[in-house]
Design a protein around this nucleic acid. Sequence first.
DNA 1: GCCCAAACCGAACGATCGTGCTAGAAAGGA
DNA 2: TCCTTTCTAGCACGATCGTTCGGTTTGGGC
Lengths: 196, 196
Amino acid sequence: MSKGEATRQAVLDQAAATASRIGLAGLTIGTLASSTGMSKSGLFAHFQSKESLQSQVLAHAREKFVDQVVRPALAAPRGETRVRALFEHWLALSRDGGSACLFVSASAEYDDQPGPIRDQLVRDHLDFSDSVAQMFRTGISEGQFRADADPDQFAHDLHGVMLAFFHAYRLLNDDTAETMARRAFDALLAAVRVPE
Amino acid sequence: MSKGEATRQAVLDQAAATASRIGLAGLTIGTLASSTGMSKSGLFAHFQSKESLQSQVLAHAREKFVDQVVRPALAAPRGETRVRALFEHWLALSRDGGSACLFVSASAEYDDQPGPIRDQLVRDHLDFSDSVAQMFRTGISEGQFRADADPDQFAHDLHGVMLAFFHAYRLLNDDTAETMARRAFDALLAAVRVPE
DNA sequence: GCCCAAACCGAACGATCGTGCTAGAAAGGA
DNA sequence: TCCTTTCTAGCACGATCGTTCGGTTTGGGC
């Protein structure tokens, strides 16, 4: 990896961390430069514009999310075990303020601001949502989930469980957040499991 | 109502509308002044600082939310009917970008930024969450909901349903968002209703 | 060790940020 | 109508915003 690419990655790491605290729109070339020990112009040279920087931060976070959540889940056995692995990794990543936070806050920030950032967020979510639905479908074909259950609805509901956890954990500092998320997830599974 | 108070309300209305689009932190004295046809200093004189403005916007939104969601629900008959009324009014307010949006985006923005704004958000959510739990408890004492169901868990789960709806409706422009939210809500109720 | 290209910095740009100060316009009670 | 209180505009301030540009350092291939 060339030197330029290395610093670019370092900047993106720092930017993603900052953005998950103060939001993607709250990112500033100045603060980002001083927090990485670079000059404004030196940092700016790596990205053509601020919007491009934000876009690259999002792509960077997406890769991390796939690596730490989606891929580990796909490595687990098909069916409920896989869905549960997805949930656990997702939860773990959200807990320590990883890239999951970024998507939550960015989605709320840009849900009413048309443009490339919003488009990217939509695309990423649809991709992920499809992955979740697909995992659920394998669970159906494995005979673990009811055939009449809606995979998209499941993905939607699971997302809701995670958003609620996020809110309780990060905003409210509620230490029962994880317990509640687990109960909600279990209830979700209980409703779609095939009756014995 | 004095003239000053009238313009203050008008500014807060405009500010709340703007903030629900671009976020509470994205509010700017300049843009707010030009969108209300006032001068920066003239507008600023009504609020001692920007943070105070944000705080008052939040309080303004809270009042609207209580008026349009909580109060109508409390006017409905106790039990499931009341909970369902809460859900429907909440949904309706979220649909047309009312004050509900503001709390969702503000919560995501300030979940990692300590200070009075965050404290206010926490307080408001705890208040509301308690109201929801209380509505659920009356449902229990009416014999409509299971006595072993956890009211706080229900409030938490309902919040998750709303957050997921919000995401699907506003970010993804998913026109099945409402249907999915209703299904999720029905599933939530089905799990806590007393068996016949 | 030389040289070119890549990487980085410093200074500056116009614009806009939040925030004061002061003077004048408007409102309202007497 | 006058006087006082309330409201609002104009102007200015330091700071910071995103961005540009010319120059300096640095690193890798010969």
